[in-house]
């Protein structure tokens, strides 16, 4: 095999060592550090970004939970307020109704009493007036032809007749 031709070993070994040495030196000094640095910078940046995003997400989630809790509390509060307002309104309505009913009952009672009183007064008046009128009429008609007894008897009779007609309900 041509590979075992020792004639070229010395030059192959020499140039291999030299060229590999140059390659190693250049890579070690110039080529690799910036590439590795770029890689590490990117890695760090990505890790930082992910961490930041994770943090932001956690914060946002916490905020959301807080707001949801607040919203729930507000809804409950609204409900409580509504219920309270309803019962208050109901009570107010009932109170008003009761008061009005009592008021109206009182007014009706008073009016009834007033009417009754007025009726009685009117009746009384009518009775007096009628009697006086009867006496006056009788006096005019009979003048002095009757005795005092006749007067009284006649007057009473007239009174009876008058009083019976307008007051049938009267006892």
């Amino acid at each position: 095999m041509p590979q075992f031709d020792t004639h070229f070993f010395s030059s192959l070994i020499f140039w291999e060592v030299v060229s590999f040495g140059i390659l190693f030196w250049v890579l070690y000094k110039f080529a690799l550090p910036p590439i590795v640095e770029a890689l590490e910078t990117r890695e760090r940046k990505i890790r930082d970004s992910i961490e930041q995003a994770e943090q932001n997400r956690a914060t946002a989630e916490q905020r959301l939970r807080e707001y949801e809790a607040k919203l729930l509390g507000a809804a409950r509060e609204v409900e409580a307020i509504m219920v309270e307002a309803k019962t208050k309104a109901q009570r107010l309505l009932e109170d008003n109704e009761q008061r009005l009913r009592a008021e109206s009952a009182r007014i009706r009672e008073e009016t009834t009493q007033e009417i009754e009183r007025e009726r009685r007064k009117a009746l009384q008046e009518i009775r007096h007036k009628t009697a006086d009128l009867a006496i006056l009429v009788a006096e005019k008609v009979l003048a002095r032809s009757l005795t005092d007894d006749d007067h009284r008897r006649l007057a009473e009779e007239a009174l009876e007749a008058v009083g019976e007609n307008p007051s049938k309900s009267q006892p």
């Binding site: 004639h7 070229f8 010395s10 030059s11 192959l12 020499f14």
Partner: peptide, 9 residues
């Protein structure tokens, strides 16, 4: 030492 350049080098 023979360090002639050849194709491999």
């Amino acid at each position: 030492l023979d360090i002639s350049l050849n194709k491999a080098v």
